[in-house]
Amino acid sequence: MKALLLLGALLLSTPSYAAQLVLDLGTGSRIWKTEELLKHPQVQTIQITDDVSYKRDMSYRAVPLAALLTGIKADDHLQAVALDGFAAELAAAPLLDTVGAQAWLAIEDPANPWPALAEGKPGAGPFYLVWTHPQAGHISPEQWPFQVASIKRLAAVGVRFPALLPDPALAANDPVNLGYALFQKNCLACHRLNGAGDAQFGPDLNIPFNPTEYFGAEFLKRYIRDPQSLRQWPQAKMPGFSTAVLSDEELTLLVGYLKHMAGRKQTP
């Protein structure tokens, strides 16, 4: 009986390494297990100041994401998909940088789990894309996906989802196209538009109605800055976008894109 009790205690104290991260980078799929990543030759402890998700300083065991992105080039496009349906669209170039803002894959050790993100919510594990010196690369909170399940190499957003594209007659540097780029970076991880996008998180921003059709421009900007300042409810998930993340000029460009797309509705 004592031997059985000892065996049970050992099993309970042994960490579980069941979590897996799928990398599909266009040259075949690679599955990384938690145990493998924690033993990666480049794994190290990093300090994150004012972590986007935890709202405080955090310490992680992490691998430089560039070390895992075999064969990826700067002009490639990646998508990180989370367990809850959050789908972050990511240009590859910032992920490959090793100077300035640097991307890391933080790995949750089952023997030392991360805290809950908030009361009644899970933690950010098992895998979390975090950044050191994010201000150097103007990194958006939407570029910090947590609970990451897979990272895929995909065609550019406009190729996959032409329903998101502004009028093709517009010049590349037209304010609407600049707003479209900001939409991809800050909104597409949670929202679809015209039914286009991979996110399963927030409502469509054009069907049946575009927010510019029921919000005045200034109220819409205020809502994007601080959603709870206009609508308060306990289960709200949309974060506010501060001027450090989205300048006043950029916010105007983003709203301009949305207003433009209200005239380009397509039925999903």
Rank of each mutant, 00 (worst) to 15 (best):
K2V: 07
L10T: 07
L11Q: 12
L11N: 05
Y17D: 01
Y17A: 05
A19E: 05
V22R: 11
D24A: 09
D24Y: 07
D24V: 00
L25S: 08
G26N: 13
R30Q: 12
R30F: 07
I31P: 01
I31K: 00
W32I: 11
W32K: 10
W32G: 11
K33P: 04
T34S: 02
T34Y: 00
L37R: 02
L38G: 14
H40A: 12
H40N: 13
H40D: 15
P41S: 15
V43W: 15
Q44W: 07
T45K: 13
I46L: 15
Q47R: 15
D50C: 06
V52H: 02
S53Q: 04
R56C: 03
M58Y: 02
M58S: 02
S59W: 07
R61S: 10
V63K: 01
A66F: 07
A66N: 08
G71Y: 06
I72G: 06
K73C: 05
H77E: 03
A80Q: 03
V81C: 08
A82W: 02
L83M: 11
L83N: 04
D84P: 07
D84V: 02
D84A: 03
G85K: 04
F86L: 13
F86T: 03
A88W: 03
L90P: 02
L90D: 01
L90R: 01
A91V: 05
A92H: 08
A92Y: 06
A93E: 14
A93M: 08
L96P: 05
L96I: 06
T98F: 08
G100S: 08
Q102L: 09
A103Q: 15
A103N: 14
A103R: 08
L105Q: 03
I107D: 00
I107F: 03
N112T: 13
P113W: 00
P113C: 00
E119V: 14
P122G: 04
F127S: 02
V130R: 01
T132Q: 11
P134E: 12
P134S: 08
A136K: 15
H138G: 07
H138S: 14
H138W: 15
I139D: 14
S140V: 10
Q143P: 12
P145D: 04
F146Q: 12
Q147M: 06
V148R: 08
S150G: 07
S150E: 15
I151V: 12
K152P: 04
L154I: 10
A156G: 12
G158D: 14
F161N: 14
A163W: 09
P166W: 10
D167Q: 09
D167M: 10
L170P: 08
P175L: 12
Y180Q: 12
L188R: 02
G195F: 04
A196S: 14
D198R: 14
F201H: 13
L205S: 13
L205A: 07
L205V: 05
E218P: 01
E218F: 06
L220H: 11
I224D: 01
P227F: 08
S229L: 09
L230C: 11
L230K: 04
R231W: 09
Q235C: 00
P239W: 06
F241Q: 09
V245Y: 00
S247E: 05
E249H: 01
E250N: 08
E250V: 00
L251Q: 15
L253G: 05
G256L: 02
Y257T: 02
H260A: 10
H260K: 03
M261S: 10
P268A: 12
